[in-house]
């Protein structure tokens, strides 16, 4: 059985460290579904600069694949940027987009951002889902 901190994904305060009241408020709001709405309503922040810089470039071989942003077909031998979700774009098409928001224009796969608040929020969301799944498993193991 995981301990309390592990289960919540939190860190115990270290010596001399003050609690982060803002974070506690954020969690409180999250638990009462107060902020879901306001946060999902605004555009997600830009992708992290280092992640964007490290996006691999690949050379197209074969035909028939279009860049989803400008809709031009990639030509044989052309160099394009490849996202972790395997979607390919012209550099001049994907870079302005990732400077605006962090997701793949085609499938909304999210890249990391440099925005600490957003990353914390995203981590919390993933954790909340995992917790739900854990409870479900626990429930099923008791009642099936």
């Amino acid at each position: 059985m995981a301990d309390y901190f592990q289960e919540m994904g939190w860190q115990p305060l270290s010596e001399g460290q003050a609690p982060n009241h803002l974070l506690h408020f954020a969690r409180l709001f999250r638990d009462y579904n107060i902020f879901d709405e306001s946060l999902t309503q605004s555009l997600a922040p830009p992708a992290s600069k280092s992640v964007v810089e490290n996006l691999p470039s690949i050379t197209i071989n074969g035909q028939g694949v279009k860049c989803p942003v400008c809709l031009k077909e990639h030509s044989e031998g052309e160099t394009v940027k490849k996202m972790p979700c395997n979607h390919t774009f012209h550099a001049e098409c994907i870079l302005p987009w990732l400077a605006k928001t962090n997701s793949c224009p085609l499938c909304r796969f999210e890249l990391a951002t440099d925005d600490e608040d957003y990353e914390a929020f995203r981590k919390e969301k993933i954790r909340a889902k995992a917790r739900e799944a854990d409870i479900e498993i626990l429930h099923n193991s008791m009642f099936s």
Partner: peptide, 9 residues
């Protein structure tokens, strides 16, 4: 609005 994606047409 905020859920626009560049691949939409």
């Amino acid at each position: 609005k905020d859920q626009w994606a560049a691949a939409m047409t």
